[in-house]
Design a protein around this nucleic acid. Sequence first.
RNA 1: UCCACGGUAGCUCAACGGUCAGAGCACCUGGCUGUUAACCAGGGGGUUGUGGGUUCGAAUCCCACCCGUGGAGCCA
Length: 449
Amino acid sequence: MSRYLTYQRVSDLPKLVGKEVELRGWIADKTDKGRLYFLRFRDGSGFCQCVVFQPNVTPETFAAVREVTQESSVVLRGIVRQDARAPGGYEVDVREFRILQRAQGYPITPKEHGVEFLLEHRHLWLRSPRQHAIMRVRAAVIRAICDFLDSRGFVRIDAPILTASACEGTTTLFELEYFDLGKAYLSQSGQLYAEAAAMAHGRVYTLGPTFRAERSKTRRHLTEFWMVEPEAAFFDLEDDMDLAEDLVEYIVRYVLEHCEAELHTLGRDVRKLERVRRPFHRISYTEAVEIIRRKGVKLHRKLPDGGEVLEDFPWGEDFGAPQEEAIMEEFEKPCIIHRYPAAVKAFYMKRDPDNPELALAMDMLAPEGGGEIIGGSQREDDYDTLLQRLHEHNLPVEAFQWYLDLRRYGSVPHSGFGLGIERTVKWITGAQHIREVIPFPRMLYRIVP
RNA sequence: UCCACGGUAGCUCAACGGUCAGAGCACCUGGCUGUUAACCAGGGGGUUGUGGGUUCGAAUCCCACCCGUGGAGCCA
């Protein structure tokens, strides 16, 4: 047997009642009643209570238990038993106990802490039960995405992170020097590369970090975030929306099935997640504008003199946070909004043949304040039209020659979308801030640790 | 970038312009065989973000700067 399988993990304890086990991990907390110690033990797979009763152990072992501190690393042996008084229902009656390293002055106590303090200690904060649960849900979301797409014939094609040109303009790119070739940028989307790969494999997806140098300071923004971007040849906008709904439904069901304990730790109301079944809501931009007007949500327009006026929401304007919230108050399931005014959307989106003012674009908004988790579109597949759009957006045509090639050699209708991993995890976990759902958040004013 | 708010012990916070800046938690010492953020008794712990100003006297009022939080815009 492999050596790492010769000791046990907390997650296995329910199967080992009555057996002696060896556990290796850390002391999350400790309390005592004189001759009786309660240790809250964690080993990464879970948390469990370990009980040490003085008459059951040697004086050396009991001395070690007396000495152990929060977050000290330990190896212990003991007998597993079921006990209703133990959190989780199982505990270990300790017989042997050894400290590997005695921690001193661990900063994160079981009491309350402020945001700044916790972010300064993110490398340690990850150990606490809530953060532990969130990271496991995050891992499950990514697993669900790969499961879903892999099993439906999508090939994972990873896009480069260093790129020579912008996908949607250059204002929000992180810039760096690339040897003798001049400026390079950190990718803000893998989409253009996914389109190329879709012409090779039919159905593909990219999954990885993307970067936006936006000076945003909200609970929905990171400067470095992860995105999955499926792209499929021969998909029109309707196919794209169906795929997005199938994917999101699958993710939520997967998490409900595999992360019951984590959702419980997070205090998530799973009944609301259980409602996330197809069909989702699906409305056009124009219908969304009607909802906004009916609810009387105004547009705050900034004036050149620094003032601000309120006006009825005009058709043609992009939605801001207040408009999205107003729309989602109407729905308990995710909602797709499609066919936006082309003027507010990216150059590569195909126009609606029935109304050239509209782009074949779609966004999916999550309920419960989850916000925009998906943005996608059918892509412009005509060479001349795409070239014209590049000119209209003042983009450097030379840099897009390879992208134009895709319309020169066997162009087909195709569509795709990007799903923000962190926004999705934030919604599913009910986290208050996006910084909690990525291991080491990068934000406007934070890059350490 | 703009608007609002904040910075006091390791942490979370209190302190009318006026005595020696306090409390809970954490930590240390002692007590207890069932703790769940245990409880009881005792102890140590402070350059009030930085610099300047007003005042007999500033944590408190004023100015500048630094750091942070919430929101807007932009977006996934």
